[in-house]
Amino acid sequence: MSAPEKIPSTTWHEKEPISRELRLLREELWGPIPPRERIQWSNALLDNPPTELSIMGKLQNTQLLHRDGIVMNRQWVAVARYWDDLGITAYEWLLQKGTLASNTPENTTPEEDPWGDCTEEERRAWTAATLRFPPMFLGATVMGLHDKHAKQTGITNSKGWIDLALEFRDAGFTPEEFIELNTQVRKFRKRGQRNTMITTTWGNLNKEYVRLKAQQWTNWLERYRAGDEPLALTEELLSPHWISQ
């Protein structure tokens, strides 16, 4: 028996050429926006869809998305073109959508500062802690832009992240204790099992993230500071709260 004929396959690094018609259409739609910024805008628009699309519309919109990461819906691209013409970047557009909270000195008064009375040192320490254990999933673009901004500036500007930090700070936790608690809790979380102490949030694309409630863990904090071994302590406190499924 002869060997089966090998059928050429196209992988991510062997992409089929884009047709001339599609290239021209893409240039017409996106105009002066550079290729890198087209991808940023495409992801921002996917995270915050300007319009609902039919099944056919979704197919047409993503004909280049899975190849080059660029959407092709005229209405969606028009949104990007409109804000780009005003000098607004995809990241700044996401800020305006309310996903992120601008906390730059020129845009925020002391009364409006989402960090309240936290010192700069505390803000940086809590930012590093919440980057390790984010409270929710906001979509790939928002998460990427947020993390890049937080790492560059040292201070997060996401309201959800700030709220998480302040909640645990107000309950008496330090950033290091927040990290220790979250590290231990995740050792016991398993797929298909539920525990009322391991609270979660549901973000974009139905992604579930562990998002603990600080007040439920103040006893853990007291005993941890008293010298209890953290792994055994966490297991003991979780034990009565498992839900049979």
Results as ranks from 00 to 15, higher is better:
I70N: 03
D163V: 01
E21N: 07
W126E: 02
V142H: 04
D147I: 12
L24P: 00
S2P: 11
E92F: 07
W41L: 10
P32V: 09
E208C: 15
L164S: 06
F168T: 02
D47R: 05
V77W: 04
L45A: 07
G116Y: 10
M1Y: 11
S42L: 14
M143I: 14
Q216R: 10
G116N: 07
A140C: 08
A128N: 04
T104L: 14
L131Y: 03
G69W: 11
W41M: 09
P134E: 07
A232P: 01
M56F: 08
N204K: 15
H241N: 11
T51N: 05
T99E: 11
G154Q: 06
T141Y: 14
E180P: 01
I243S: 04
P50I: 14
R211L: 02
G98W: 06
W83F: 15
P110I: 13
F178D: 00
P240N: 09
L237G: 02
R81I: 10
Q152G: 02
A90N: 06
Q63N: 10
A44R: 12
A90F: 09
I7S: 07
G98P: 03
A140T: 12
V210H: 12
L86A: 13
D68A: 13
A125L: 09
W83M: 09
L22A: 12
L46V: 15
L181M: 07
R123T: 03
I18P: 01
L138H: 13
K159N: 00
G57C: 08
L24H: 07
H149F: 11
E121Y: 02
M197F: 13
Y224V: 03
P8E: 09
R189F: 05
A214L: 01
L22Y: 04
L95Y: 05
F178K: 03
A140F: 11
I18Q: 07
I198E: 03
T183H: 13
T89R: 10
K190L: 09
V142D: 01
M56A: 10
P175D: 10
S102L: 05
L86C: 09
W242D: 03
L145N: 06
L46P: 02
S2M: 10
K207Y: 12
